[in-house]
Nucleic acid binder design. Structure first.
Lengths: 225, 225
DNA sequence: TAGCTTCTCGTACTAAGTACGACGACCCGA
DNA sequence: TCGGGTCGTCGTACTTAGTACGAGAAGCTA
């Protein structure tokens, strides 16, 4: 029986906190965090605005929730494995995930209460370093550093004015022209000579920096052990 | 003559784009970025909402503007000086500035068009590295890295759930109790043994990591020269 | 089947961004 | 001095967004 006068395509399997939050992620991915409104969210779910309030207390809770979902997508390192391999894997994964959900980076700043996925994540990284016999002190240093680098890199990538498919050159050329006024000479030089070269990919910088950090940490680690 | 029926204290010197933007910074500093509304802004200026629209096209322009003002507060390195000294000075300055205006970090992600202060800043850093005879390639690596680290660190600091005066311990204790459930054992261990020690200051981690990066860059630089 | 719980949503209020155009203040040349 | 601009300020009002409140449908249990 179950008469359903449903105008949205397909069925409407019943709401749940999970479904609400994942839908919110999808909306933010598609149109940016500003496009995520209670109304747009409910529409993407095929329901009405007030329905989502049965599952979340308010919009802030949604924001906290989706940040934690994103963190949950990052691969955890496995304590006990080779620490460089594990740490690099999780750093690469973090960057990939944050590039897929760039809005999450900006949210991290304002949301100060970490969710379970976030905590689990921290725990795994610490465990991996400690298992590799990093001292507590070195673990703290290393962790702060790796996270700073990773998030900061993602932040910069998110700030770049172009999307995946475009190359740097396509977008930068017209911008460069605007200030060929002679201000910023070094910036312009670097841009034309280096960043705008055919094969340049800013993303590659990530690996370079990560290697540098890992090398340096390895040195410190063996020095202490 | 100039009859003024002014109800706000003091005078009202006349608006200007500058005054509007600095007032916006002040409002955001005081109450967070969410508290910055056209209405709160105009009130802090002693005027009415629509008055600010004579100086800015819309709110987004305000956001772009204040991010650039914040960037303008960061000390520029001086090309020609000792590169380590200069780069460290600007990194320290950047962190200080971003700690004073934590809302700016989250905004960086969404605002993709850099303002003049931001561009001037980039130019100065590149100039400093190049003057120290870093190759273009190494300059690109170093810059991406230093910025990632600096912004990422600021991002993490901003995410910490306490303000300047409190110590980590004050705020962390009650949180820790919530999950003494045995999940996150390594995290809890690190927290109690290390982060919650009396003198611990997360900010000190910045120096440690920065030194590590600078050392490593110095090695790479001399290897190439 | 009565009554209770679970879930959905209609209505409506508040806050915020901002379009439009009125209006006073000042400014200039005649 | 006066008449017509231009500049700066703001009143009004419309739109979009978050969400309080409570009605009522849907399903569950005894």
């Amino acid at each position: 029986m179950t008469e359903r006068t449903d105008d949205s395509p397909g069925e409407r399997p019943r709401l749940s906190r999970e479904r609400v939050l994942w839908a919110a992620v999808a909306v933010a991915d598609a149109g940016g965090i500003d496009s995520l409104t209670i109304r747009s969210l409910s529409q993407s779910l095929g329901t009405k605005p007030m329905s989502v309030y049965y599952y979340v207390a308010n919009k802030d809770e949604i924001l906290d929730g989706i940040v934690d979902l994103v963190f949950g997508e990052i691969e955890l390192p496995e304590p006990g494995g080779d620490w460089r391999t594990e740490i690099r894997r999780r750093a690469d994964s973090a960057r990939r995930v944050l590039r897929a959900h760039p809005w999450a980076i900006g949210l991290m700043e304002s949301r100060t209460s970490p969710g379970p996925a976030t905590l689990r994540h921290h725990d795994a990284v610490i465990a991996t370093l400690r298992a590799a016999s990093f001292s507590q002190e070195l673990t703290a240093h290393a962790y702060a550093m790796l996270d700073s680098y990773t998030y900061g890199f993602a932040l910069q990538e998110a700030g770049l004015p172009f999307e995946g498919s475009d190359t740097v050159a396509d977008v930068a050329e017209p911008i460069m022209e605007r200030f060929s006024t002679g201000e910023y000479p070094h910036l312009v030089e670097m841009a034309t000579d280096y960043y705008l070269r055919p094969g340049y990919d800013f993303g590659d910088e990530f690996t370079w920096g990560l290697d540098l950090i890992l090398d340096a940490l390895a040195t410190r680690a063996t020095a202490t052990t």
